Computed example of a mutant assay.
Amino acid sequence: MRKWLKDNRGILVFIVCLGLFRTAIADWNPVPTGSMRPTILEGDVVLVNRLAYDLKLPLTDFSLAHLGDPQRGDIVTFSSPKDGTRLIKRLVAIPGDIVELRNNRLYINHQAAEYSNITEVREPIGHGRFVNATRVTENVDGSRRSVQFLPVLDKKSNFGPVVVPDDEYFMMGDNRDDSKDSRYIGFVPRDLIIGRAGHIVVSADIKHDWKPRFDRIASPLR
């Protein structure tokens, strides 16, 4: 065993350093679901900046240094406060904000979101099946993004109003009717936020034979 460790110490050091890098500085996050469509697709692998908000002790949620504050509109990865699952969503409300949803229209601090560029599309749901969807540009409090709505019966299109507590955040998926976000799992404490997603590293169409999506490689996330 000692000889094996000596013979392979180079690769072992590399693995340890890579692990520390991924848990403290930058990470890549495969996305298996469509909760962030149309911004992020199933099969995208996004690059996560772990130093966007805090310098954390590797392998823990303990913050060693405060580096920045999460902002409305950021796309973030975090551990679910409900079961610890790693999720990726859009941050729509910060501490002190009043957030409300009325018939799928978002309100932040009583200011209604404006919707433009309304487009009807057919969304693939796998196995050659499609569902009609409506895509729009949502603009609220200076934050713009593309979101979409689906014709589902169990959607949570009305919510709140609620006040976001201190040191916690309200997250939503851009695919509003297919996202288990803060409407279901509650507010997300800051110490559970892992980092900010900035770019797509690689992408493959996991619903159609894993064909690579070359046009999405290195695309910035907005």
Rank of each mutant, 00 (worst) to 15 (best):
N132R: 10
G84Y: 06
L41S: 09
W4P: 07
R22C: 05
T137N: 13
I108M: 04
P161Y: 07
V45C: 03
D205Y: 10
R105C: 13
A24E: 12
N104F: 08
R196S: 01
P220T: 02
E138S: 08
L153I: 10
D74W: 00
V201F: 01
A218H: 11
R213I: 04
S143Y: 10
V202C: 08
I200W: 07
G198E: 01
E168M: 02
I94Q: 14
E138W: 04
I94G: 02
G96N: 14
D97A: 08
G84C: 01
R22T: 01
E114A: 10
C17Q: 12
R213H: 10
N109T: 06
T33P: 02
P58G: 10
V164D: 08
K56E: 03
G34A: 02
R144G: 00
V45W: 04
Q71A: 12
H110V: 14
T85E: 11
K56P: 04
F149I: 07
M172K: 08
H66S: 03
R176A: 13
G173C: 09
K155Q: 15
D181V: 08
R216P: 02
P161R: 05
G160R: 00
V45R: 05
L64R: 12
F170W: 10
D97T: 10
W28G: 11
G96F: 13
T39K: 01
W4I: 12
F62D: 12
G73N: 07
F130I: 07
K211D: 09
N158G: 10
F62E: 13
R222F: 11
V48G: 06
K211I: 08
P189E: 09
D27L: 12
N29M: 15
N8A: 07
Y53N: 02
D191R: 13
F214M: 07
E100N: 09
E168L: 06
G34F: 08
G195W: 06
F62H: 06
I193G: 06
D177W: 05
V164P: 08
S219A: 15
L5A: 12
F159T: 02
R135F: 03
D97Y: 11
N103W: 08
F21R: 09
L221F: 11
N29Q: 15
K82Y: 06
G68L: 02
I217S: 01
F170A: 03
E138F: 03
P165D: 12
I200H: 04
L153V: 14
M171Y: 06
I94T: 11
I194H: 13
D27Q: 10
D69Q: 09
E168F: 01
L153N: 15
L57A: 11
S35N: 11
G126F: 14
T77A: 15
Q71H: 04
I193H: 03
R9M: 09
V31Q: 05
V31E: 03
F130S: 13
D178G: 05
D61Y: 13
S63F: 05
R183H: 04
S146Q: 15
E138Q: 06
L12G: 08
N8V: 02
G186V: 03
G198V: 04
G19M: 11
F170Y: 01
R105Q: 15
I194D: 12
V201R: 00
W210E: 12
Y115W: 12
L67Q: 09
V92W: 03
V163W: 11
V76M: 01
A218W: 06
L153H: 13
D205C: 07
